[in-house]
Nucleic acid binder design. Sequence first.
DNA 1: ACCATTTGCCTAACTGCTCTAGGATAGTAC
DNA 2: GTACTATCCTAGAGCAGTTAGGCAAATGGT
Lengths: 190, 190
Amino acid sequence: MPRAGVTAERLTLAAAELADEVGFANVTVSALARRFGVKDASLYSHVRNAHDLKVRVAVLALAELADRVGDAIAGRAGRDALVAFANAYRGYATDHPGRYAAAQVELDLDTLLAGAARRHADMTRAILRGYHLPEPAQTDAVRMLHSTFHGYVTLEHTGAFQHTARPAEESWRHTLNALDAALRHWPTDR
Amino acid sequence: MPRAGVTAERLTLAAAELADEVGFANVTVSALARRFGVKDASLYSHVRNAHDLKVRVAVLALAELADRVGDAIAGRAGRDALVAFANAYRGYATDHPGRYAAAQVELDLDTLLAGAARRHADMTRAILRGYHLPEPAQTDAVRMLHSTFHGYVTLEHTGAFQHTARPAEESWRHTLNALDAALRHWPTDR
DNA sequence: ACCATTTGCCTAACTGCTCTAGGATAGTAC
DNA sequence: GTACTATCCTAGAGCAGTTAGGCAAATGGT
């Protein structure tokens, strides 16, 4: 009987696809084994346990997201960069809801985290360069942007915006305008 | 043998407490039964299944959150109302992380949802009264505020802000200032 | 006070997912 | 070809969810 050719990488990728299809919460070792035509126990030679598998998907997702955002903001600045970043971010969450959900798991392993999460923070800071914010306002602005983007796509996907006629697309556009304005006139303090 | 006195209400409350202690994801029918000194199967006379239980906790949390926010903004307007709303929201999430997580489950039952979720939207609109935004800008602003609050507390609790020295508290204050400014100078369009 | 009904909780049993231990076999290296 | 290692297996444990069916405590009518 020929081998199925399971590797940690192929498992992670398949788990990511599975997540996008059935939701990250439903990504299970059993389901993954089924997809490979293999018994559950066989997967434990490649991943330590279910949590390990989920972390791998999270790291994959963070890297993909960073790639997409990085491409989008290349060569742009100021408002253009902000919009490009935001749309790339939201686009990834829409195209890959399962992967995006995976990216939100708590990553204790700062070593791995430092890799992908740092890239995100750095890119957000790159956007802000056009707005000339000094520290620590820059850090505050990074957090606000991240919060707004993450909050928006999360609420959008849980259906929180479906009870009003206004298209989510329109509100998104205007939210970005408001963010741009907020960054241009960042309040010194009070 | 005397009865344990289990009711749907007491189950829901106990599940909410359990959620705050061990996390919403770890709220399980078994754990709840254990806490009541009762067998798993006994709970199925009171709640339909595990999902039903979680929805009940979600509804409870939404109502509690709405109460707290409602109290906070009573008698306030403009910036004061915005800050009061935001702090009440964030405070609830901090005091009851499990309940707050529960409130984010997808509520398909629009009937039940309409009850609590409507209150939130209405209250957010109440804040905006001081900023004199016409529709549909008002809807956009509601969504932006909700997104920012939700995104911020979510990221804060998943530890996304712990890799920088800046206290989360400070960034929160300045984010609210920026939101206030954004609402006062809401971009008409472009 | 008695019996019927409802209700609360039980045992028993099945399913699906996680994970460990130990064994068979295919591919690789010499 | 023999030795080794990696891949996959079977077997089986434990735990969470769930259904079915039964007994006993509470309730309420007469």
